[in-house]
């Protein structure tokens, strides 16, 4: 069809009305309360079922990660091979040791799922925080100063982008014999910061041409003020969205590495490691695989849903 039917500027009026915002707003006294954009987004979020569901899930997961002992008295590290070897789950025994059954060494799967959450969350959160800070800074530097810095950082991100994330982390982790949570976190962050850097760079470039940035410069504002007062608060939204969504993917990455035997080493409990253990019993004792895998899926899904909800609230174009 021809583009005659496409609304462009013509729909702005309607859009403005729909957004309930200023073009036509307030005869006489303006709306009652100060309403910041953040508060508006929060109001939208709270009404979004996607956010409520994922928020509650994440809250539970965080609680489990922080205090797994609250939910079970069983020890995840030791099992009674004689009594419990590959015991089937007892779904009626909610919150009890044998709820999810036992694994090949007679350890409670319920306890292992609970204790495994901690490592997954630490890696997920840790990587996200690291890449947001480092990638965000790099992106801001490249976007704001442009020129040489931009060329340098952009080429650097290109190089990192060329390395497959998982393969790269496998190579890096292979160099470590003692792979603690922090080593895994560091390795994933080392390879993962470029995505955030790119998003940040784009957002900063858009924002730095805004009139209010020009206005601040005209007042004689310094670089620090312009960056942190004017650009960052307006450029951060897409970064938050990407960071939330990728938190889930970092958890998956950690599990995948553990599954391949290149993730957490030693006695660390990891869903990935348990999934790997479970594959050998998949025919007759699928529960050994299913429960850690389910926990992983639910966690990742919760973060991705949260990211979607946040995007809907923060992105004014989708409103």
């Amino acid at each position: 069809m021809p583009d005659l039917t496409k609304t462009s500027s013509a729909s702005e009026e309607a859009a403005a009305i729909v957004a309930g915002t200023p073009v036509t707003s307030d005869a006489g006294p303006a709306p009652e309360k100060p309403r910041s954009l953040g508060a508006d987004a929060w109001r939208d979020l709270r009404r979004n079922p996607l956010f409520v569901v994922s928020g509650l899930l994440i809250l539970v997961i965080l609680l489990v990660a922080a205090f797994p002992g609250l939910f079970t008295g069983a020890n995840p590290d030791t099992g009674d091979q004689a009594n419990h070897f590959l015991g089937k789950p007892n779904l009626g025994h909610v919150f009890q040791e044998d709820w999810f059954g036992y694994d090949g060494t007679g350890r409670s799967l319920y306890a292992r799922v609970l204790y495994g959450a901690r490592n997954s969350i630490i890696v997920g959160l840790g990587v996200t925080i690291l890449v947001t800070i480092f990638g965000g800074l790099m992106g801001m530097l490249a976007g704001y100063f442009g020129g040489f810095w931009d060329s340098l950082i952009s080429r650097l991100t290109d190089v990192f982008f060329g390395i497959p994330f998982l393969l790269g982390s496998m190579v890096v982790l292979n160099a470590f014999t003692h792979r603690t949570v922090w080593v895994v976190t560091g390795a994933l962050a080392f390879l993962g910061w470029t995505q955030i850097a790119r998003v940040m760079r784009g957002a900063v470039i858009t924002t730095k041409h805004a009139d209010y940035v020009m206005a601040a410069k005209a007042l004689g504002a310094g670089t620090k003020r312009i960056l942190f007062r004017h650009i960052l608060p307006n450029a951060i939204a897409p970064v938050i969205v990407v960071a939330t969504i990728s938190l889930g993917t970092y958890i998956v990455a950690e599990s995948t590495l553990s599954y391949l035997g290149l993730g957490l080493g030693g006695d660390s409990i990891s869903w990935g490691g348990d999934i790997s253990d479970g594959t050998q019993f998949i025919r007759n004792y699928p529960h050994v695989l299913l429960f850690p895998a389910g926990a992983l899926s639910i966690t990742v899904l919760a973060f991705i849903m949260m990211g979607d909800a946040v995007r809907e609230a923060l992105d004014p174009k989708l409103r």
Binding site: T5, K6, A10, S11, A14, I17, V23
Partner: peptide
């Protein structure tokens, strides 16, 4: 802006959201 002039036109065209 907000007088409804464009909205009327969109209604006529049938391109109102």
């Amino acid at each position: 802006s907000g007088s409804g002039k464009s909205v009327t036109a969109q209604a006529i065209m049938g391109i109102l959201d």
